[in-house]
Amino acid sequence: MNFSEKLKDLRKTKNMSQEQLAEKLYVSRQAITKWETGNGLPDIENIVAIAALFNTSLDDLLSEEKSLLTKHEFLYESSTEYDLDEEKRLDISIGTAHEVIVEKTTEEKIQIMLASNKISNLAQQAKVKIEENKNLMDIKIKHFPDLTEMQAKEDLYIFVKIPQRFVANIELSGIIENLRVRDITFDNLEFGGKMKNGSLTNCSGHVELDTSSDVIFNTDNFKGKVDFNQIHADSVLNVKNGNCYLRRVGTRNRFLDSEGKVIELAKSRRSDDYTTEEFKAYDFIVEIAGWKSELKIVRL
């Protein structure tokens, strides 16, 4: 079943008209008709919104389509490679981008690829600068003045491929629409800045999300821990193929279920010992910290 058929089936299962679905997605009814007749695909933001609305995954929605989220064929590309011979902490400053994909490579060099379908002079508009010392590799994506923030936000893709044997601690910062981390094991990955959508697929480690923006986050075959360190944010975590233990710290933070009802925890869980037998039944831990934030847990 392709995307158009799945969308129509999901809509009818929920007894929604095209007009009602259009209102929930803030698009026109004509757009819904176009998607359901196979005459086009929604943009990434609407695809993510549809997945969240119907409690399904992006992979299920787009199993027969070539997803924009995993597309590796672009009109314009600029690549940088740097040899690694030992484990280093990676500090990667993105700036502004539409999507950042982090994954492993079997080669012993870090690879950074900038890609776009619209920024024709990409190699002159954005550069990768790498500085290295004994324990740290500092990577910066430098934008030149002619590349506007709007252009970068709409059509700049950044692929980061890291040798698995040298992966340990990764720090990412920037203003991005989508972050995808897949097929990689790490000790710690910390993101700081603004993000709309994120995903962890077939990977493990400790992830810290330091962002006050509302985030729709997806996990699929993830093991480890995810910290939502947010201030006055309303985020969603879609969980597929795994079960999670919920831990709340900070002030006035709470978890919600898929219906928007508060999940009551038995205790504050501030001093949980993750080495006990109790935690062996869980694939990963979700912690909400910060202040006055809500995190909706949707189990797919």
Rank of each mutant, 00 (worst) to 15 (best):
D91K: 11
L114Q: 15
I119G: 11
K88Y: 05
K142V: 15
R165G: 00
I184K: 15
L84H: 06
E154F: 03
A168H: 09
V160A: 04
L156A: 11
E77N: 08
K66P: 07
L90H: 12
A115N: 13
I170T: 09
I110G: 12
S63V: 05
E108A: 11
T185N: 04
L189G: 15
R165F: 01
Q151K: 07
G95E: 13
E73F: 07
D155F: 05
H98P: 12
I112M: 07
S93F: 11
Y157N: 14
R165L: 02
K66T: 14
N169T: 12
L84N: 10
V100I: 03
I119V: 13
I119P: 10
K127L: 12
V181C: 03
V100H: 02
K142G: 05
T70W: 13
I112Y: 10
I170H: 06
E73M: 05
I162L: 15
K153T: 08
D138F: 07
G198L: 00
T80S: 01
I184V: 11
F191P: 13
L84V: 03
I170A: 04
S67Q: 01
K109I: 02
L90Q: 12
G192T: 10
E171I: 01
M113A: 13
E64D: 09
K118Y: 11
L69M: 10
K140E: 07
D138Q: 14
G193T: 08
S93L: 10
V100D: 04
I101M: 07
Q151G: 04
D146R: 12
C203V: 02
K104I: 01
K88W: 07
N197K: 06
E81Q: 07
H72Q: 10
L62Y: 00
N117W: 11
R165N: 09
E65I: 09
N121C: 08
E108S: 14
E99Q: 12
I94P: 15
M150S: 15
S204H: 01
N135A: 09
K127I: 12
I94T: 15
E132K: 10
L189I: 15
K134C: 09
K161T: 00
S199W: 05
E77K: 09
Y157F: 13
N135H: 07
K71R: 06
L84S: 07
K161H: 01
D187M: 00
I175R: 12
V102C: 05
V181F: 01
I141Q: 15
K71S: 06
L114P: 15
E190S: 08
D138C: 06
N188I: 12
E132I: 06
I101E: 13
N135S: 11
E132G: 05
Q124S: 14
K109C: 01
I101G: 06
T106Y: 06
Y82I: 00
I119Q: 09
K161E: 02
